[in-house]
């Protein structure tokens, strides 16, 4: 990997993780999960994640709403209506903690980026890695939008320049 690619990757990782933390805290959660990485990836400036989502007729706003709806639906199923979760008020401090599944998605995205052309980590690699998860909130949110994981995976691989 070239030096410029490595520097670009560090910037991408910083943006991705900071964005995931912001998404989680806005939803009242201290620890980001795969769904927050997915939302953060969709807003990375490289634009590949956004284009992969557009290819399956969705966008970051719809995905964010679907994540919220997944939790709301689960509570409604129990006869509970809690209303929207308030954002965490305290600023994030200390080292970022993520869920084990978010770590898995991140590591898989880095792995996919190594086989990508051009080289370098991009949002689409995160989308592809998140779409590989069969269960959990991210998978349920995609399903709620009527999107097949395989479709997202294929679109993200194309956008990310990852061989099928």
């Amino acid at each position: 990997m070239g030096l410029m690619t490595a520097i670009r990757d560090i910037r991408t990782i910083k943006r991705l993780l900071t964005g995931a933390e912001t998404e989680a805290r806005a939803a009242g959660e201290a620890v980001p999960g795969p769904e927050h990485l997915l939302l953060s990836a969709a807003e990375l400036p490289d634009g590949t994640a956004g284009r992969a989502l557009a290819a399956v007729d969705t966008d970051v706003a719809a995905l964010r709403a679907a994540v919220t709806a997944v939790h709301d639906d689960a509570l409604t199923g129990l006869g509970l209506d809690a209303g929207p979760a308030p954002a965490l008020a305290a600023p994030a401090t200390g080292p970022l903690r993520t869920s084990p599944q978010a770590q898995q998605v991140f590591q898989r995205a880095v792995e996919l980026s190594r086989s990508a052309t051009p080289a370098g980590l991009r949002g689409a690699h995160v989308v592809a890695a998140a779409a590989e998860l069969e269960r959990g909130t991210a998978a349920r949110a995609l399903r709620r939008l009527g999107i097949e994981r395989d479709q997202v995976l294929a679109a993200a691989r194309v956008e990310g320049g990852v061989p099928a």
Binding site: A30, A74, L78, L80
Partner: peptide, 11 residues
């Protein structure tokens, strides 16, 4: 999924 939502609500 209900457990996840309840955990968030409990927090």
């Amino acid at each position: 999924a209900a457990v996840v939502a309840l955990r968030r609500l409990a927090a």
